[in-house]
């Protein structure tokens, strides 16, 4: 049995639904905050994720970080060294999608050159009638950045676990690779 720990940095523009998404995931869908309240700092959520077909797990320490620029710089100081990254945008806001590259760079600047698994999340998939970002566009960009793409709706409890499960799985895979590599050294 292995219990890994991963520091997951959650970023993206303000009001794309980062807190809603992470709280839905943490509470297994029990908690959707209807009224918007802006995150001003960093909120830490911890949740263990089981890796399918093993007795192993990854404990995710999710750093839900303010998207508003005024607070962003102060938040960065709390990130430490990221293990995985989750970049979120709102599918009904092209501007929020265009910011993703900047958010990703910002997190990568803290990674000391390490390979950091990541996901791109298009949230608010319930607003498809107002969609400004096509799924294929997001998918292509995600792929070019080595990220996995997921669409979610925190409001409709749609697919909210998927991005976090895939991050946990990717971190677990990285661990197994390193373990095997180190085994050849001794």
């Amino acid at each position: 049995m292995v219990k890994l720990r991963a520091r997951c940095i959650l970023v993206g523009d303000a009001a794309v639904g980062k807190s809603a998404l992470s709280q839905m995931f943490r509470s297994d869908g029990a908690h959707f905050q209807k009224n918007y309240s802006m995150t001003a700092g960093v909120e830490l959520l911890v949740k263990p994720v089981n890796i399918p077909e093993t007795s192993d797990s990854v404990e995710l320490y999710i750093y839900d970080s303010a998207g508003r620029e005024t607070f962003a710089e102060a938040c960065e100081k709390m990130w430490g060294q990221p293990s995985v990254v989750c970049v979120v945008f709102d599918i009904s806001s092209l501007a929020s999608f265009n910011s993703c590259s900047r958010w990703l760079q910002r997190v990568r600047a803290h990674c000391n050159g390490l390979q950091v698994p990541g996901v791109l999340v298009g949230n608010k998939s319930d607003l498809s009638s107002r969609r400004e970002v096509e799924e294929t566009t997001a998918q292509d960009w995600a792929q070019s950045q080595g990220l996995q793409y997921h669409e979610t709706s925190a409001k409709e409890m749609e697919n909210c676990d998927a991005p976090f499960l895939s991050l946990a799985q990717a971190f677990y895979t990285l661990y197994q690779e390193r373990r095997q590599m180190i085994q050849t050294l001794g």
Binding site: V2, R5, A6, R7, V58, Y61, Q81, S83, F171, I182
Partner: peptide
């Protein structure tokens, strides 16, 4: 032995 090791499991 150097063949056997303790491995950290994430975060510092």
């Amino acid at each position: 032995k150097t063949e056997t090791f303790w491995l950290s499991t994430g975060m510092f």
